[in-house]
């Protein structure tokens, strides 16, 4: 067993696991943060997307020991108390989900996407950027709408602050 130390959602945590333990399993089972999902378990569906050192990654294809020492954000860490993150609020407002299984990965992907594009997104870019996230319910239409709406709001808020 190896000791893994991470900063997860701003809190320093550590735990023991085998070297072959996947990061997603460490997050779900050792830390009890079950918002990050295991969908396909083959690096395709994106239900396991989290942020590692500020970048979106698929936590089913990273060992927990590889991540040791890094700064992790999961779906549980993006709201402020009871106030939803603008991307979460946009998914709620636009009904960007049906069964909800892919949603944590979609939201984490959207947050990273909006950050990289500085809020400047169009529909085609959003659809291309969703290459690594699979939803089997919605046909993506409301997911794309939610992300565009959140990007507008976050871009607008940024301009207002400047």
């Amino acid at each position: 067993m190896t000791k893994v130390t991470l900063t997860v959602n701003g809190r320093k945590v550590s735990g023991e696991c085998e070297d072959r333990t996947l990061l997603v399993n460490f997050i779900r089972e050792n830390l009890g943060l079950t918002g990050t999902h295991v969908g396909c378990d083959t690096t395709q569906c994106g239900a396991c997307v989290i942020h590692m050192d500020g970048r979106s990654v698929k936590s089913c294809t990273i060992l927990a020991v590889q991540a040791s020492g890094s700064d992790i954000t999961t779906i549980e860490g993006i709201s402020s108390g009871d106030t939803l993150h603008p991307v979460q609020a946009a998914f709620k407002e636009n009904h960007g989900l049906q069964c909800g299984f892919c949603t944590p990965g979609m939201v984490m992907t959207a947050v990273d996407m909006i950050r990289r594009h500085g809020g400047q997104l169009d529909e085609q870019t959003v659809r291309n950027e969703l290459e690594g996230n699979i939803c089997r319910c919605t046909g993506y239409h409301n997911i794309v709408k939610s992300i565009l709406s959140a990007a507008d709001e976050m871009g607008g808020a940024k301009q207002a602050a400047e």
């Binding site: 690096t43 994106g46 997307v49 970048r55 979106s56 990654v57 698929k58 992907t109 290459e131 690594g132």
Partner: peptide, 9 residues
């Protein structure tokens, strides 16, 4: 290559 998350790693 791959998707945005794969390109990060």
């Amino acid at each position: 290559i791959g998707d945005p998350h794969v390109r990060h790693m």
